[in-house]
Amino acid sequence: MKNLYQIQEICRLYHIGADSLRYYEKIGLIQPQRSEGNYRLYSLSDIWRLNVIRDLLKLGFSTRQIKTYLDARSVATTRSLLDEKEAILRQRIEEMKKDLQDVQNRRQSLEEALSEPMNQVCLRTFEKRRCLLLKENIEHDEDIDFLLTKLSGRLEEQLSILGNVDTGSMLELQPDGSVRCTSVFICTEDESYDFTLEAGDYLTLTYSGRYDTHHEHLRLLQETIENQHLKPAGNFLEFLLIDIHETQRYEEYVTQLQVRVVPA
């Protein structure tokens, strides 16, 4: 086995650039020897230190923290470092478990959306739902993503790049038959919330295709309310179960309208 290695060999071994090795040398993490031609030569001791640097960088330690450890290694500092590494790894495991659960929940929501009966008015019972609200005038459907981004500062963990799960909007049917979206909200299990969607019986209507046809489906909901001698007990709600976040095909969009009803 060789005792000294040139910079190109170390770069290939660690898949890093020569600039990184020069930076490590500059801040004192490694001290390669020099050949007669002034080329850097890395010893087995340098390789050991590079292994430590690589592993600690992966765990999020700064180069300053790594240098402090390498310059004052002892049983006590190694034990302390191992304790810190264990804590970091345990935290990452918990984060990965949550990420896995989020992916599984999203897949389940997607499958449930695809199995919804389309173009049928159904009566369903919902438990009380907590919501965060952002009330603003919304002129375009694309505005919803912008508003959800503003909400993310309050509840970042519950907004998914794989789809706006459990997010909805409140709709108002205008006298001329058009529909106006007055606000967007996100359902949350957090203790901090703005309002609740009350528990009770809801008429729902799920349809596929472009969601800008909601005025037609809202009229069907209204007709059903009248025919069944019911009356609305809240706003009309729109949930985009499948939209631009999951597909670029309009025909694959799935939207669900909801409204809580009581006997007239």
Rank of each mutant, 00 (worst) to 15 (best):
E172T: 06
A113C: 03
E252N: 07
Y39T: 05
S62M: 11
Q256M: 15
R260A: 06
M118V: 10
E9D: 11
R73Y: 07
L56N: 08
L114K: 10
H217Q: 02
T196A: 01
V254M: 06
K150S: 08
V179R: 04
Y5V: 03
V103Q: 12
D102W: 07
V261K: 05
E9P: 00
L240W: 15
R129H: 13
D83T: 13
N235C: 07
H229R: 10
Y211T: 00
D194P: 02
I186F: 12
N3I: 06
S74C: 03
K97E: 14
Y24L: 00
Q228V: 02
P232H: 10
D143R: 07
L29I: 06
S152V: 12
R22V: 07
E136I: 00
Y23Q: 08
L110P: 13
I88R: 09
Q258T: 08
S35N: 02
G28I: 14
R260G: 02
L205D: 05
V121L: 00
Q31K: 15
E9L: 09
L59Y: 07
L100N: 14
L4S: 08
Y42E: 14
Q256G: 06
T167R: 11
Q6E: 05
Q6S: 07
L56I: 09
E189Q: 14
T247V: 10
E246C: 02
S192I: 13
L230E: 11
S45K: 13
S62C: 03
S152Y: 15
P32L: 04
Q101E: 09
L134K: 12
I242Q: 10
M1I: 12
R12W: 06
N227F: 07
Q120W: 06
E251A: 03
S192Y: 12
R54D: 09
V261N: 05
P232W: 09
A87Q: 13
E142K: 05
D46L: 09
D55E: 12
G37W: 15
P175A: 05
Y211W: 14
T196E: 13
R219L: 10
D99C: 10
D201L: 08
L173V: 01
Q256P: 03
S192P: 00
T149R: 15
E238A: 06
T188E: 01
G177A: 03
T196D: 08
E84F: 08
N227Y: 14
L162Y: 09
